[in-house]
Design a binder for these strands. Structure first.
Lengths: 163, 163
DNA sequence: ATATATGCAAACCCTTTGCGAAATT
DNA sequence: AATTTCGCAAAGGGTTTGCATATAT
C-alpha cells in the first residue's frame, strides 16, 4: 500500500487514493511537495521542489498532476496576476488573498460574512452563485500597531505580480 | 485637430489627446470601437471590429494600443477566465461582473458598500488597498419575479469561460 | 526633421499533447 | 497482462517584440 520512503502518507496522497487515483512515484513526490507547501507555488516552483526530492520528474508530469488534482477537488488553482497559475491545497475554511503589490507577498484572510453577502447579491440578480474570485492588491502601511480583528492572517514570501 | 470621418471625437479619443498621446489613424479607429463597445471584448474581437472599419490595422497594433490605453488609465483589463484578456473603458462608477458559467453572459452590477468593506479589511491587515478584483461565477435561476435592488443590471451576450 | 507608431513575422511564455517506453493495478 | 502514466520534444494559444517603413507632431 502506497507509502512514501518514510512509511508515511501525506494528506494529499491519502486523498488521491480515496479517489482511486493511480499512485505513481512522481505523484507521491508531488503530493508530498504540495502537502508541505504553505504558500502558493506555481508549476515551475512545484517542479523545482519535486525535482529536488526525486530528479526523475518532468515539468509535463507536474502540469498533468496539478490538473488531475484540480479536477478532483484536491487542489485549487489561483491567479494572482503575472501570467502563471498558482496552486494551493483545498482547505476547509474559505479564505481570500491579499497580494502586496510591491513584494508579491501573499496574505490570507478570512471573512465569514463575505460569502453570504455575495450569495445574496447573486440571488438578487436572478442567479445562483457557483464560485467567486476575490483578490485584494494592496501596499503595506507604515507599521502602526494594529488591532486584531477576526481576520486570520498568514504571511508568505513569494514572487511579484501585478493586478 | 483630430476628428474622425464624421468630424466627431469619441470620448476615448478625447482622453487620449488630453494625455498627449499621438493620434494615429489606427488609434482613432480603435478608440471609436472601444467607445462604442458596451460589452467586454477581447483583443481578437477588437481587432475584428477595428478591421471592419479600416482594414489597415494589425493585431499587433491592437495589442499595443490596448496596453497603452490601460497604462494611461483609459481602459481596464479584465480576466473572466478563458485565457484571454478582455477590455472595457474605465468608468466612473465602480462595478463588478457576474459571469454566467453556462452562457458566458456577463452581468454588471454595483455594490456601493463593497469597496468600503474591502478597504476596511485591507486596513485591518495593515495594508492600503490599491485595487481589487471580484468576479462572481453563477448559474441562471428559473425566472422567478425578482425584487429590484440597488444593483444596476446590464446584460451582455458574450463567449464562454470557466472559473 | 525627429521621434514615435505600424506591419509583419518571428519570438516568447505558459501550458498541452503525441508518441514510444515505463510503471501501476 | 492490461491500462494508465511518464519523459521528451514538438505544438498550441495568447501576447510581445525587432526591424524597416510609414506617420504624427
Amino acid at each position: 500500500m502506497a507509502t512514501d520512503r518514510n512509511g508515511l502518507q501525506t494528506r494529499i496522497e491519502r486523498m488521491c487514493m480515496e479517489r482511486g487515483l493511480k499512485m505513481t512515484g512522481q505523484r507521491r513526490v508531488i503530493a508530498r511537495v504540495l502537502s508541505e507547501a504553505h504558500d502558493h507555488p506555481d508549476v515551475e516552483e512545484l517542479y523545482r521542489r519535486a525535482a529536488a526530492l526525486d530528479g526523475r520528474i518532468s515539468v509535463a508530469t507536474v502540469y498533468r498532476t496539478v490538473r488531475l488534482l484540480e479536477e478532483n477537488g484536491i487542489l485549487e488553482r489561483r491567479d494572482f496576476g503575472g501570467g502563471r497559475a498558482r496552486y494551493e491545497a483545498t482547505e476547509e475554511g474559505d479564505h481570500y488573498h491579499l497580494i502586496d503589490v510591491e513584494s508579491g507577498q501573499v496574505v490570507e484572510f478570512t471573512h465569514a460574512a463575505h460569502a453570504e453577502l455575495l450569495r445574496q447579491i447573486t440571488a438578487s440578480l436572478g442567479f445562483e452563485l457557483v464560485s467567486h474570485r476575490l483578490e485584494l492588491f494592496a501596499r503595506k502601511l507604515p507599521d502602526v500597531a494594529q488591532e486584531q480583528t477576526d481576520h486570520t492572517v498568514q504571511t508568505e514570501q513569494k514572487g511579484g505580480s501585478r493586478p
